[in-house]
Amino acid sequence: MTPFDSDLRPAPAGRPSLAVGLRNRVHRSEALRGYLLLSPALAVLGVAIIAPLILLIVMSTWSMSGFDMLMTPGLGNYAIIASDPIYAALLGRSLKIAAIATAATVLLSYPVAYFVAFHVHRHKMLWLILLTLPFWTSYLMRIFAWRVVLGYEGVINSALMSLGLIEAPMQVFLYSQTAVTIALAHAWAAFAILPIYVSLEKIDKSYLEAAADLGDNAARRFWRITLPLSLPGVVAAFFLMFIPTVGDYVTAAMLGGPDGMMVGNLIQAQFGPINDWPMGAALALVMTLAVAVAGLAFLLLTRMIRR
């Protein structure tokens, strides 16, 4: 760590007892200078995020007639999405796959993050690098690797056949929702480990010492101190992984088969072969809304549990 680590601690910040008036005067220009420094980044993000999203919303109200886009606004696309059960089913499946993969990853990663935070002392950095190194490789490549492993004539099947355990390749692996779930859980593990690790690492060890002095055993210390204090990291890990995975289409395209198709694949198809951009825009917005609602529900749930 830096030689200035002590400054990281929340120093007992001087309450504005001295020279409040002066600070207030400086405050205005300070905020102005701050905004000035922020403006380049905000301008770029504004152009690249806000403008396209507004256009996406507008386009979702348009419609297609043959190869022409009709720019008369209407809610036709949303009506179709609401009435045809296939959209709800696909959306539900995407949310389910993402939720299972996320829950599995968070649960399985927590002990590892805990181990590195509390039981590794000399080679902490080495462990963190080891755990995150696979994620510096291309996302596409990690999915590709799973295809090699799970394929009909892939690693698992051919190894089992070489060992004489099965006669013919089993079909359960590739092109299923299970394959998609496994690959997603595996691909996003670093996103789960890091926030959990950070929140565990931040825990003031003196709390644990105090609890031990007062007679709490290891299990009680974990339940009453470590787990609640690391919950923000767990929640962060959940969001960091759940939201992007709902919208994933690459994994499903490479490993899912027809049964493992997700809503992302449909959106991609609307902008590709189906060529119905307004419908694709509407679907993308509905998916975003669904993710937001699911995320909000999860947040409320954790709030309730914490209370």
């Binding site: 922020l38 980044a41 905000l42 993000l45 690249a48 995020i49 403008a51 396209p52 999203l53 256009l55 996406l56 386009m59 969001f239 960091l240 939201i243 992007p244 709902v246 919208g247 994933d248 289409y249 992302g264 959106i267 991609q268 902008f271 951009w277 694709g280 825009a281 993308a284 998916m287 975003t288 993710v291």
Partner: peptide, 23 residues
């Protein structure tokens, strides 16, 4: 502001992809 700037970490890449494509 910070939330807005970190938003792309959690928004699916697909959304940005299609939104930018449209623009």
């Amino acid at each position: 502001i910070l939330g807005f700037m970190l938003l792309p970490l959690v928004v699916p890449g697909l959304i940005f992809g299609v939104a930018l494509l449209v623009l």
